[in-house]
Design a protein around this nucleic acid. Structure first.
Lengths: 192, 192
DNA sequence: CAATGGTGTTACCGCGGGTAACCTACTGTC
DNA sequence: GACAGTAGGTTACCCGCGGTAACACCATTG
């Protein structure tokens, strides 16, 4: 039986994923089409343009990452534990699939600003999620809206950059990176 | 009298700068050559390839930015004042020339990892500088090497991401962003 | 047996990075 | 003054990528 449109789409995305993981930023529409055993125009029928494909690709990864982050934000054991778990969730995602992570960051940077708000970048989404987390955090009731937002986006960038640095320093254990970052943050949270 | 090679190079870089500020990421070698009143091969003779030109371009901007940061890191008045001045120095650079700043971040993301260490990205350089600052900070004598490094690169990313977010929220005054970020950081420093 | 529509392919366009080959004009030398 | 060499520049091209138009195949339906 022939696959449905959506199944097809999934298959194409998986092929794209393989190419990205294998060839990194050299992943071209031609390569992806070849990997999927078809030719370019079909890709374009499904995703419109390259940006569309990349957005679809990014969306799946971002979704699973955000799920993990949401879970970490609900960790029990107090603010410090939650903070640490959240930071570590991000770092472990980076550790598992560095290529994917690089792809996401890079695409987010390159993707044109568009209508600003249509397609938010990767770190931005992360920041939004953190902002929610901060607002829902019992220990941080008194934090102003502005402070929560600025902190959230700042922290998102912090964890991202630290993760990036860490990729080049694999001798440092993940737990150490998570520990140092959390320590810095928790102290700030405390005085809020 | 004919300009020297170095003067020439400077002139070309200035032309490239104009194009980047005007056309953003659409700045192509052809456009830049045209702006400089010459043709492509000359550009290539001077800079090797596109990456070379962009690196040269980035270098000048990074240099002035790092100078400002170094100056801010020496602000008198205590750790809190220094922290705030440093964050604000970065934000004010972003404010002055958003296009340039976007260019730097984007290029750093796109530029291939290369030999890792040859050409460090933009945020990375910023992080290195901060790491120096932390190590030289009298109030932070007890901080371990690892902690200083992780913090530095994390903070670099934090300020960058917050700046990025801020560009889309111009209604927030710069001082507020700087204030919120510094507050978060200084608390963490204190407990170190 | 048409006519129709979905699914795929080939072949092309425009453009950007990068380069080979050539052209020109100034310099020094016999 | 004629000539060779060379610095500095241009034209014209190659390749690969994103993107698309036009065509080919094949099944279904009156």
């Amino acid at each position: 039986m022939a696959p449905s449109l959506l199944e097809r789409r999934e298959g194409l995305l998986e092929a794209a994923d393989r190419v990205v993981q294998r060839d990194g930023s050299a992943a071209s529409m031609n390569l992806i089409a070849a990997e999927a055993g078809i030719t370019k125009p079909i890709l374009y029928r499904h995703f419109g343009d390259k940006s569309g494909l990349y957005r679809a690709l990014a969306a799946r990864h971002i979704d699973v990452l955000l799920d993990r982050l949401r879970a970490a934000l609900l960790t029990r054991g107090g603010l410090a534990a939650r903070t640490r778990a959240t930071v570590d969730a991000y770092l472990s995602a980076v550790e598992e699939r560095p290529q994917v992570y690089r792809f996401l960051v890079q695409r987010a940077a390159v993707e044109e600003p568009d209508v600003r708000g249509d397609v938010e970048g990767f770190v931005r989404r992360f920041g939004d999620e953190l902002a929610m987390g901060i607002r829902n955090e019992p220990s941080l009731r008194g934090v102003s809206e502005l402070r929560a937002t600025v902190w959230a986006h700042g922290i998102a960038g912090m964890v991202q950059a630290a993760g990036d640095w860490w990729l080049d320093h694999p001798e440092v254990p993940r737990a150490s990176v998570a520990e140092e970052l959390s320590a810095l943050l928790v102290a700030g949270f405390d005085l809020a």
